[in-house]
Simulated scan of single mutants.
Amino acid sequence: MALDDKLDGMKDQATGKVKEVSGKVTGDSQKEAEGKAEGLMGKAKEKLGEVKDSASEMAEDVKEKFKN
């Protein structure tokens, strides 16, 4: 699941950047703003995936400690 969040976040960052640059080139400030927002959401999703990975690793470490 965390990998899905990371990949989805990367995709959103990439499409957001394309929209942002497209908006800059064409002078469409709304499209530029949408691209920036999408890029920020992508970063947030990617960070969420990283947090999920860390939490999962911590849970596994705790399980291992209680097994011994």
Rank of each mutant, 00 (worst) to 15 (best):
K36L: 15
K63Q: 13
L48A: 08
L7H: 08
A59M: 10
D5G: 02
D12L: 14
L40D: 04
V18Q: 05
S29K: 15
D28A: 06
A59Y: 00
K65P: 07
K52R: 04
A33C: 09
K36A: 09
V25F: 14
K36R: 10
D53V: 01
G23L: 08
V21P: 05
K63S: 13
K24I: 00
A55I: 04
M1T: 00
E50P: 02
M41K: 15
L3E: 13
E46H: 07
K45I: 11
D5K: 03
G35Y: 03
K24L: 02
G16S: 06
G39V: 12
T15L: 11
S29W: 00
E32D: 04
S22D: 12
V62H: 00
K36Y: 12
D61A: 05
S56C: 04
E60L: 10
N68A: 15
K52F: 01
G27C: 04
D53S: 05
M10E: 13
D28F: 03
E50F: 14
S54F: 01
V21D: 04
E46T: 00
T15W: 05
S29R: 14
E50T: 14
A33E: 14
K24N: 13
E57C: 02
K36E: 13
G27R: 09
M58Y: 09
K11D: 05
G39R: 12
A44I: 09
N68T: 15
V18S: 06
D28I: 00
S54M: 11
S54V: 10
K45D: 08
M1Y: 10
D4T: 04
A2K: 02
G39F: 06
A44Y: 00
K47N: 07
A2L: 03
E64M: 07
A33M: 12
E50W: 05
K45F: 07
E32G: 06
L48I: 01
L3C: 03
K24W: 00
D61T: 14
L7T: 10
A44H: 03
Q13D: 11
